[in-house]
Amino acid sequence: MHLDEIYQEIILDHYKHPRHFGKIPDGQAMVDEENPTCGDHIKLNAAAADGVLRELVIECAGCAICTASSSMMAEKVIGRPVAEVRDLIARFNAMMRGGPELSDDELGDLAALKGVRKYPLRIKCCTMAWHGLDAALNQVKG
């Protein structure tokens, strides 16, 4: 089995110990999305001040890839200007769909997700949190 290609240590670490995760009561999430093909379920709440993303809380019932992508994304974006975050979302999603590759330096832990591109049916698992964050940013003020 070529488990290491996609299930790298760093992904399993984020899967078992996701960062910035918390319970979000029903009806209190800015974004509440379910992937109708697989049942993965993600909720997000975000807050910004002075153009900077200050807070992000995620609740995710998904596979290792979906959970790790959410957790690594949260680590990456909190504390960064909203405009930069939007740019990263666009470029990350484009990369996952076969577009230009981001450098490992820029991606950090997220580089581990590059291997998922070889499995077309799993790409959605990877991008779900990013689409969710994009939708949440459309609602944040400040």
């Binding site: 049942g39 290792a64 890839i65 499995y119 799993r122």
Partner: peptide, 24 residues
């Protein structure tokens, strides 16, 4: 998670279904 199970066994050539099986 079922997705991860299905992905792993697929690496061994085994086809199973993972998801809500159209019965949410």
């Amino acid at each position: 998670h079922p997705h991860d199970i299905a992905h792993f066994v697929d690496q061994d050539g085994i086809a199973v279904r993972a998801g809500h099986m159209c019965a949410q």
